[in-house]
Nucleic acid binder design. Sequence first.
DNA 1: GATCCTCGAGTTCG
DNA 2: CTCGAGGATC
Length: 689
Amino acid sequence: MADQDVAERVRTLRELIQYHNYHYYVLDQPEISDREYDALMRELRELEEAHPELVTPDSPTQRVGAAPQPEFGKVEHARPMTSLIDAFSVAEVRAWLGRVRRLLPDEVTLDFVVEPKIDGLAVALTYIDGVLVRGATRGDGRVGEDVTLNLRTIPTIPLRIPAARPDATAAPDAPARIEVRGEVYLPIPAFAALNREQEEKGERTFANPRNAAAGSLRQLDPRITASRPLRFFAYAIGDIQGHTVATQWEALHYLQALGFPINPDIAHFSDFEQVIAFCQAWMQKRDTLNYEVDGVVIKINDFATQERLGIVGNAPRWAVAFKFPAREEITLLRDVGVNVGRTGMLTPYAILEPVDIGGVTVSQASLHNYDDVARKDIRIGDYVVVKRAGDVIPQVVQPIVSRRTGTERAVQPPTHCPACGEPTVRPEGEVAIYCVNASCPGRLVRQIEYFASQGGMDIEGFGSRLAEIFVGKGLLRNVADFYRLTYDDLIQLEGFDETRTRNLLQAIAASKERPLWRLIAALGIRNVGGTVAQTLAQHLRSLDALMNASAEELQEIEGIGPTIAESIVSFFQLPRNREVIEALRAAGVRLSEEPKPTTTAAPLADKTFVITGTLPSMSREAAKELIEAHGGRVVGSVSAKTDFLLVGDDPGGTKYNKARTLGVPMIGEDDLRRMIAQGPAANPAPTAS
DNA sequence: GATCCTCGAGTTCG
DNA sequence: CTCGAGGATC
């Protein structure tokens, strides 16, 4: 590249970075992902390193963040609030240690303090003679905004130190002056509640807890800040007079003694392998926390050693931030497609420019329903925030409105079914849009798929791909046609040799003997899933009884109300559906069942379980059957009525946290087996999480 | 009539 | 897993 071009590129990069700094730090509305931003910074840094004559004092590489907003007073930090060197892999963390080692004499031994890196925003609190006199945001690292009034509304920030502590341990005297640094953040449940509230009020929602915390702290009216449940953890001393501390570990405990909340999960290691293990353990654990953690900060413990290593650019050499893979990216929404569900429900889905989010390439995401799309004002051609949370399934969070060019198109709900072309219907008061054509081929594919699925008749080896082919070839016009398929029908299909053909025919034949409730569920009656089907099967014992029952009779059954009863009656009123039943009967499918012998003194009687995570030695389905076989019930979500949470590896955050707040005992697979073996009275010793 | 609990339906990538 | 909506209960 010619020197002139380099100078031009450097100028362009600086303008771009400054623009994005402003959006990120001042407006709390980033337009590009952290990754894209990092790439810009990296390019600029490399160019400046190759051409030192181009470096200027105001280059973004020489500063952090953006200038403070004019509405707040400016505060100069006693010592600059630096940023951290990032490491995106274990190898990069090791490389950091290697660089540190080379800068120090061999006889220096190192030990490390590690802290989960909470995704909030950094603040500095100044106390003089024990009184909180000022609180500031980081701003550009040198000068921040005075948000004292807002910070004073956060309950865990002491207004006076030493703060009274419940354990009544003797607290040290307050130092003459201290600047305490820490992170202000918003717990995830509070963030979700806040967004719901904002939505109801028709105000803009926040893309993530960090933005919400930043937005809450930057309120000009402290009463608004006070209404947001912000929290605080102290993590460093910026400046101190009248007391000395020698290490980071000591500093943290001194802060705690003064009454500041410190993160309970900090640790101190002298073995670097334990540091690495800590990082990896936290990467696994991050979904189970009720606050966002985007990495682990590793600091060299000894302050004298820190001093020797010093600061390069705007980041200290003695600390590194091990960053977890991103769970959120920004990408282009290319188009919006329409899915036809088994019930005829039409759901929009986003077709995205493929983007890597935490190691997985995401190219599609459900958009739920058209109301949701309209509420979020998502348009085709928008850049959108895409999140892949602990639940793995990607979702489109919101559009980047400021990045619009004016060529974006609004998303139109379909007026005609994409599969059959019939006009669509939107029932009064419902959000969903339906195709009501009973013989819509799109619906038929999904109905067939559902009939054969694991929750239904469980025809092994028959999935969505085959459902499409079989319907397309006209081999299946309804679910009863499964039992008419012959060897000759299948062998002609692509990919079907003799073995595969025989296997599928065998699997279909085996499905004739499924329990009655599976057949009822597999029929796909609206509002009738596995649980309701079991209730119906237990009370009525045969499909004929179900078919001939009136709505009134059905409502006698506990758990069946007017809506479900009506769904069932109208399903069997359709001649088409009665014909299918007769065909199933003729094919020899089991349509009734014997009354179940009453279970005697089941050890888990009347106990409700919720399962989360991966169990060591059995599938969740197997665990469910085991519990039900011994009289217990398994439900999908934790509530006050839940007796036990069965916890496996990598538990989901929602259930785990709810169980913890409600005090629901947590048990492991071993505890469950013990409860079953020991009989009804046995209470488990809940294992530590 | 309000509130809590539970169920059904749809869903991504490799 | 999350959402919306049905059912039971006060």
